[in-house]
Structures are given as C-alpha cells and as structure tokens.
C-alpha cells in the first residue's frame, strides 16, 4: 500500500465519519439542567434586596448558566464509560461517538474559566469564587469522587445543583444571609426524592452501570422509605421558608398545597410493594416524578412572585 493510497483511504474514512455540529457541543452543556440553573439563579438574583442593573443581571445569569454547562461537559467527559451503558444517557454526544472525550474536557475547562472570570468581572469576585467552588464541587467532589463510591451520591449531587440561587443572590448583594441558604436547602432536600423516584422506574439503568444507587445497595424497600423521610423533612423546610424574608402569603399557599400533594405521593410510594408497582408499570412513581418537577418550579416561582410584587406593596408579609 502506497502513501497516496493510505492518505486517500484515510480521507475517505474521515469524510464518512460523523462531523460534530454546533448542536452536539451545545448538548454537552446539558441544556435541560441549564434551564433549571437559569431559573433558580434568576430567582436568587431577583429575590435579593439589592437592585441589579438589568444588563448586569442578564450577564450574571448567563455566566452562571455557562458555568453550570461547563460542569455538565466535564461530567460527561468523566462519566462517558457509564453513560454508554445506561439507556437514558447512551445517546449523549460522547457515548454516541459524535464528540471526542478530549474535546468535551477542553470545552468544559475553557468554559469553566471563562464563566468564573466573566461573572467576577460583571458582578463581584465573591460570586465568581462561589461559581468556581460549585463547578469544583460538582465535577471533583461529586462526579470524580463520591458518585461511584456512596449510595448517598444523589444527596451530594443535589448540593451542587442547589448552589445557583445562592450564586444569584451573592451576585446581586456581594454578601450572604439566611435566605439564599433556604433556597439552597429547598433544592438540596428536593433532589433525593426526585431522583430516587426516577431510579425506581428506570431501575435496570443504574444496575447495569454499577452506580451505587440506593435502589441497588440498600434495596427498593429502603429507597421507598427514604423518599418518604426526605419528603417529610422537605415539607417542614418548604413551609417554614414561607415565614422568612423571601416568603409571604402567595408562597405559603403554594407550599401548603404542593407539600400536601407531595407527601401524599411519597406516602403512596412508601406503602406500595414491588408487585403493586410492577402491576401498573410504576404509575405512582412516575406521577410523583412529574409532580416533583412542578413542585420545584412552583416553589421558586412563588418566591419570584413575592419578590416582584414587593415594590407594589403586595409581596412578603409587610
């Protein structure tokens, strides 16, 4: 075989190979997770008692979202081996062969640096440092260290996902009080029941990947009990938040209704046996999971409503 024929065959192979488009690189940033980050960070920013210039606020949210996306890309780079095993994740850009792992790492690192520096410049360096810590926490502490080590991985991962409203608040105020940590706690306590419900009806996924999900290590009965315990603790926290600086009558109404529904769902999950669940194809678990999405959105929506109505004399308790 001559050099010319080798080059020709290599070129032909390259031209047949899939060419990653812009959308494939964008998919590395986990757009759906980014939308949650954008929303919760926006609520944190707007609920803060310090007004922010709209353009600075826009930039703050954008860079927090890019930071969240960057950590998503680094997560996909590290977890490519388990992503290709799980049905839910095998279509992601790296396991599907659209993007090289090295490209994902480079994109993640570059966007991490960019987002932290730009958030620091646009708002304040406390917020920038907090974003850097969040990326470090999600990528190193959760993804690289604890995700494959402990069945409490979801609880730890939930902490990383709960930081954006705190960063939004710090971006606006440059300081820390109790209120952003209440928003943090809301997302933190919400994550385990949300993901464990998913793990109950997507069960083979986590088993196949060997991720020590609670359903695998402690059994499905224990997972059902855990969902109920976390939901009960979450309800106390969520309703209690109504009496803080970010709460008010609108939030209280939303929290009471949603937590009653959420508790009812968790109770139903805890009481069910595996045979019950198999019989109706995990109907109760699926409904609980759907409700959990609405739960977080409406709680943060209510905090936002209280903040936006305050200037007109309606929001909050005053």
């Amino acid at each position: 075989m001559t050099d010319a024929s080798i080059n020709a065959s290599t070129l032909a192979a390259q031209s047949r190979a899939y060419e990653a488009g812009f959308g494939d690189y964008f998919a590395l940033l986990k757009p759906r997770v980014m939308s949650l980050v954008v929303f919760t960070a926006l609520v944190g920013l707007l609920a803060a008692p310090v007004p922010v210039h709209p353009f600075v606020g826009f930039c703050a949210i954008l860079f927090i979202a890019i930071g969240g996306g960057a950590s998503g890309a680094l997560n996909m780079w590290w977890d490519a081996d388990i992503d290709k095993v799980m049905k839910r994740t095998k279509g992601r850009p790296i396991p599907s062969g659209k993007v090289e792992p090295g490209e994902a790492m480079a994109l993640g690192l570059a966007l991490s640096g960019l987002s932290v520096i730009m958030l620091g410049l646009a708002t304040n360096w406390f917020a920038g440092a907090f974003l850097a810590f969040t990326i470090f926490f999600y990528v190193v502490i959760y993804t690289m260290w604890l995700k494959r080590l402990t069945p409490q991985n979801i609880v730890i991962g939930g902490a990383a996902g709960a930081f954006p409203p705190v960063i939004g608040w710090v971006a606006a105020t440059g300081s820390m009080t109790l209120e952003p940590w209440l928003m943090f706690a809301l997302t933190f306590m919400w994550t385990p029941p949300h993901f464990w419900a998913l793990a109950l009806f997507m069960r083979s996924d986590y088993d196949d990947a060997g991720v020590p999900m609670l359903t695998v290590t402690h059994g499905r009965r224990a997972t059902r009990t855990h969902i109920l315990v976390y939901t009960a603790l979450l309800a106390v926290l969520a309703v209690g938040t109504a009496f803080s600086g970010i709460g008010g009558p609108i939030y209280l109404t939303v929290a009471v209704i949603l937590n009653a529904l959420f508790l009812r769902g968790a109770w139903a999950i805890a009481r069910r046996t595996e045979d019950d669940a198999e019989a109706d194809n995990f109907q109760v678990e699926r409904s609980f999971f759907k409700l959990s999405l609405l739960y977080l959105f409406l709680h943060f929506g209510a905090i936002l409503a209280e903040a936006l109505l305050k200037p007109y004399g309606f929001g909050g308790w005053s």
Binding site: S15, F55, V56, C59
Partner: peptide
Amino acid sequence: ELHQRRFGRNLGVGLTLAAFIVIIFGLTIV
C-alpha cells in the same frame, strides 16, 4: 468540501463570538 461540512459549526462559533463581543461592550458601557 470541509467548509460545507463544517458550515453549521463555524456559523455557531462565529455567532457565539459576536454575542460575546456585544456582551463585553454592553458590560463596559454599564
């Protein structure tokens, strides 16, 4: 042929960079 194949990606990168310039300019003004 590579230019045609990578048109979408190049356009995306170009627009992203243009947006970044607008953001830097806007932040400077603010």
